Computed example of a mutant assay.
Amino acid sequence: MSISVLGAGAFGTAMAVTLSQNGPVTLWARDAEHVQAMRENGENARRLPGVKLPQNVTVSAEIADALQAETLLLAMPMQKMTGFLDTHSDTLAGKTLVSCSKGIDLSTGQGPTALIRAKVPGARAAVLTGPSFAGDIARGLPTALTLACADHSEELQAELSTPTLRLYRTTDTTGAELGGALKNVYAIAAGTVIGAGLGDSARAALMTRGFAEMLRIATELGARPETLSGLSGFGDLVLTCTSAQSRNFRLGHAIGAGEAFDPSITVEGAATAQALNKLAHTRGLEIPVAAMVMALTEQSISVDEAMQALLARPLKEE
């Protein structure tokens, strides 16, 4: 097995830790000072404090070290992926590139696997997604994820599974990546509901209508409905809409409560809301909840105004 994880955020670090049960793993970070701190402390105190890095996890700031592996997990923000693929397209050709990003590229409207195929045609594109928090994976708590790859690879499924990380495979890469991306938008909405003190009943209604929007746009873009009903769609939606461990939920909670939010924290749902509304507009789809999320994150509408806009929509059949 030859695996590197590109990106030393919380999730990338957690995947390096759990995959080290199967063999040596290289964990790459672009910040040399961050790498040095991880080597000295034996943990990623900046992103995943309290989790020790096993001895067979090699931390490096040299991209050449990481690119020697045949299977590369791209654990980087979605909006950074285009630049990375462009810069290293020649070296990445022929490798298996597994995106761990949950989002839609703002400049192209593409998900990660489509972006990989466009930028590195010679690579094998896959996506790893589903309901998970980095801390749970790193501490060996039972977690199930979706691995989507066009060739339905049992070999890759086995390579990325561990005794506590169970992967279910699918060939529906579109559905898997859209489920992972879109649920972040509705997690912001759910956090806003709770932060504003609107209650759990309102959150349940929001999640249900949000899931209907997810199905509407994902199937329009070619996803299979059953994929959205699985781990990468409904499962991930439930997790991120109900836990303060979710960065998207925390952003929404801050918006609802009228509190400041740390701008250094990557929250994919804000950018995804913009991309989602562009897609919906071009295809004539109604996604009122996602539209309110975009307006809230852009600070062009207040929480009260968003709530009133949604409640004032015409009554209709479910």
Rank of each mutant, 00 (worst) to 15 (best):
K316R: 15
H152N: 15
R247E: 12
A125C: 10
L296C: 04
T266E: 14
M214C: 06
N41G: 08
F84M: 12
M207A: 13
F84A: 05
L167Q: 11
K278N: 09
F249S: 03
Q308S: 04
G191E: 07
V238W: 05
M292V: 06
T272A: 01
A290G: 15
M307G: 10
T146K: 02
M292A: 14
R166H: 14
H152F: 12
Q245G: 09
S99V: 00
R250M: 15
A254R: 07
A309V: 15
R166P: 08
P54A: 05
T146D: 07
I116N: 02
E317H: 10
Q110D: 07
G83I: 10
D136V: 04
G210Y: 05
A16V: 03
A32N: 13
W28T: 03
H253A: 09
V303T: 12
T129G: 00
I301P: 00
S302K: 07
L115M: 15
A126D: 10
S20P: 13
L206P: 06
T170W: 02
E318A: 14
T173F: 01
L251E: 08
T58P: 09
T266R: 03
E155L: 12
L128R: 01
W28S: 00
G197E: 11
G258Y: 06
P24F: 05
G12Q: 08
H152S: 10
A176W: 05
L106Q: 11
D236T: 09
R30W: 05
T129S: 15
H253M: 06
T240L: 03
L53F: 06
M214E: 13
D105Y: 08
L315P: 13
G175R: 00
G9Q: 05
L239V: 13
A223K: 02
A66I: 06
R124Y: 02
A223V: 07
A14D: 07
A75W: 08
T13G: 03
G191K: 01
L85C: 13
A64R: 12
L315H: 13
I63D: 10
G252Q: 07
A114Q: 12
A205F: 03
T171A: 15
V127F: 00
L19V: 11
A64K: 14
G175N: 08
H88A: 08
L72G: 04
L106I: 10
C100L: 14
E70H: 05
L85P: 13
A8I: 09
G179P: 12
R39A: 07
P54S: 14
S153Q: 13
T266H: 06
S2R: 10
Q68L: 05
L106S: 11
P314G: 12
A218P: 15
E259Q: 14
S20A: 14
S60P: 14
T96D: 06
A290N: 08
S132L: 04
T143C: 04
